[in-house]
Amino acid sequence: MTFNQLNIIQPILNAIETAGYTQPSEIQERSIPTILNGNDMIGCAQTGTGKTAAFAIPIIQLMHQAPKKTKAIRTLVLTPTRELAVQINENFNLYKGNLRLSNIAIYGGVRQQGQVKALNRGVDILIATPGRLIDLIEQGYVRLNEVEILVLDEADRMLDMGFVNDIKKLLKYIPKKRQTLFFSATMPNKIKTFAKTILKQPKEVIVSPISSTTESVTQTVYMVENKKKEELLIEILRGQKLKRSLVFTQTKHGADKLMKTLNKIGVKTGAIHGNKSQNARQSALEDFKSKRITVLIATDIASRGIDIDDLSFVVNYEMPNVPETYVHRIGRTGRGGNFGEAVSFCSRDEKNELRDIQKLIGFKIPINPNTSCAFHLG
């Protein structure tokens, strides 16, 4: 199937073609007609499958085909992190092409003055993190009484980050008569239960269960003591001839410490995590995208906004506590038909995490013995 067969209007088709896309992904193929028909929807697909375009494209079309002269916000997209808000806003800019629709992203960590000015000029599509949005509503800068479409993106992550009460608070400001779209990479029972409280007769679009890892990513694991992980990472990066690599740590402190170590030996490295300012995080991400730095170290909470087209190498420096997080992490590579490689470092005290991950994905990740730092997994 092509985008031409999804009843998308020509200006958006032109923008899609300019972006270099020809065929919709499965989540896009199934979601776009559902949303264009006005249905509430639950969309579940693993990271990297094109969920953002799956809702951005039909929303742009719906907004364009039913224009209003007011400056009111007509679509609200809620997302858990600043990086995701920026990324989603970029997607709307990409797919709307020359259509006369306005969209902005608002989020914390930066001064609100510029965001308030943009809101005062009038916005059709608002992408926001819950905390900053509530703050601006309470200051009287935002009204949501004319919202027609509500999107909850990365709903599982929002609930994990404790945003459920903020979302419930925001729902009080939004008309009950609306179209609600609920997108998540995982669909545990608590997510389904919450979805049912805010959606009306939703259509379900479930693609690639989160328990699966993409076949386009080669996965290996090194059994290595914690004190030897730095040495192993340097060995591997040099073996990779220092091609761009995304490295995941569990903590902000660990990310900063590892960044300093790599920079000291001449490996150009940046880090993004929750303690970094918005400008610092965006700067590091842009440096990574433009290849000014070779290695980007990220914590999980910052990782969802990382969208690099040709990223081929991911390292789990520390094993995630939640098995599904492993799938999210390695989903940063092997995108868009490209192949990628993911390596994981597992210490003796992380063996249970490895076993839980292997149980989730349904196979044993091959152990790579080719290092002086390895030990045997008992």
Rank of each mutant, 00 (worst) to 15 (best):
G305M: 11
A302K: 01
G48T: 03
D124H: 12
N7P: 03
N279F: 15
R355V: 14
L136S: 04
Q28I: 13
T18C: 08
T325M: 07
M187L: 15
P24Q: 00
T213S: 10
N120Y: 06
I330M: 13
E83P: 01
E90R: 15
A271D: 07
E341A: 07
N91L: 04
G334A: 13
V77A: 08
L262Y: 06
P130G: 13
S31P: 03
L78E: 05
A128N: 09
I127R: 01
E26D: 11
T2P: 06
D124N: 15
K96C: 10
L232H: 00
I127C: 04
R100Y: 12
L233G: 07
L246V: 08
K291S: 10
P58A: 09
R157E: 14
F163I: 13
I32G: 00
I60A: 02
E146D: 05
P188Y: 00
A298F: 03
N37C: 12
A298R: 00
L242S: 07
I125N: 04
T299Q: 06
N189R: 15
K71C: 07
I198T: 05
G97R: 01
L136N: 07
S303E: 09
I272S: 07
G20N: 09
F345K: 01
E215Y: 08
I59F: 06
I149C: 06
P33Q: 10
G254V: 05
R157D: 13
V147Y: 05
G114F: 10
P24N: 02
Q278P: 14
F345G: 05
C44S: 14
L170N: 00
M223H: 09
E90H: 15
G114I: 08
T49M: 03
R329I: 15
E83Y: 01
P175T: 14
Y107N: 09
R348W: 06
S31W: 04
E26V: 11
V267E: 02
G336N: 13
R281N: 08
L262S: 06
L62P: 09
E26T: 12
K117S: 15
F375H: 03
D256H: 09
D307F: 14
I42A: 02
I306M: 06
N91S: 14
T197R: 12
T220E: 12
K190M: 10
P366H: 01
L84S: 04
G336T: 13
T81N: 08
Q282E: 12
I9G: 07
I265P: 14
L94R: 14
R100L: 14
D124V: 12
P209K: 00
T371W: 01
V147Q: 03
S312P: 00
C44V: 13
H253V: 14
L126P: 02
P323A: 15
A15R: 01
P175K: 15
V295S: 03
G254Y: 01
